[in-house]
């Protein structure tokens, strides 16, 4: 049996008396590429931010690598976050630093590695995402696709066993999206990463996902394998796959 990496239990979130998430529970096992899918505003990003400990505590528990997110203090948090890579929708690279400096940042801050090794590691990760030429460029000098690849390079610089991706394909053309998907698949296969991805891109899901978590109106409407998701009797999920593959609503 595969090890359970993420375990979310009975997570309920409300803002200003609006219920965003209600009794959300799911789990992700090691080596899976789990996709959190749902309509805009269904609560996907809220789930992601709670898993990352970016939102205030809410009823329910989120356990990652056996660590309860609610019990993260400054010291534990530093060690905990080293095991995660997070790939933000807009890249979230620091604009005042070059691409190389951005990618090197976690290494400089968390390790005592010599500068030349750090530089080599940055070059290796940039090469992995086909972005060698962007070493000295600033984020503002990159195109949307390049920005995302640079963000992916930063997310994996510490070789984290768990990678979170927030809508990685948003705004990408189909070719760039396919390249990004291949990269994520390679990371899973070559580095044994577990990937949790929030996305709307059905083509991307069909290419790489092996688990689907469908969020509808703040609740988990479906949790299962990709194959099960495609034949699910949840009408909203069926509509996603139908429309996403070119069918009618």
């Amino acid at each position: 049996m595969q090890e359970k990496i993420i375990d979310v239990k009975n997570l309920s979130v409300s803002f200003d008396e609006r219920q965003i998430l209600e009794d959300v529970s799911f789990s992700v096992n090691q080596g899976e590429i789990a996709v959190i899918l749902g309509e805009s505003g269904s609560g996907k990003s809220t789930i992601l931010k709670h898993m990352l400990g970016l939102f205030p505590l809410a009823p329910g528990t989120v356990t990652i690598f056996g660590q309860d997110i609610a019990e993260l203090d400054e010291d534990i948090a530093m060690k905990f976050y080293r095991k995660l890579g997070v790939f933000y929708q807009n890249g979230a690279l620091l604009n005042s630093l070059t691409v190389a400096e951005n990618i090197a940042l976690p290494l400089e801050q968390h390790t005592d590695l010599p500068a030349d090794i750090i530089e080599d590691l940055v070059r290796t990760k940039l090469s992995l995402v086909n972005l060698n030429h962007a070493f000295h460029l600033y984020p503002s000098q990159l195109s949307g696709g390049m920005l995302k690849r640079a963000a992916l390079a930063r997310a994996i610089i510490m070789d984290p066993p768990l990678l979170f991706c927030d809508e990685p394909g948003a705004g990408l053309d189909p070719v760039s999206l396919a390249t990004l998907d291949e990269l994520i698949l390679n990371l899973r296969d070559q580095l044994g990463m577990t990937v949790v991805m929030v996305t709307h891109e059905v083509t991307s899901i069909l290419r790489i996902a092996n688990k689907v978590i469908f969020v509808n109106k703040g609740r988990i409407a479906f949790e299962g394998s990709l194959e099960e998701a495609q034949i699910s009797d949840v009408p909203e999920l069926r509509a996603f796959f139908r429309v996403g593959t070119g069918g009618k609503k």
Binding site: L52, A77, K79, Y81, V86, P106
Partner: peptide, 8 residues
Amino acid sequence: DALQTMGL
């Protein structure tokens, strides 16, 4: 957020 999730 990115800084925080990099443990910074």
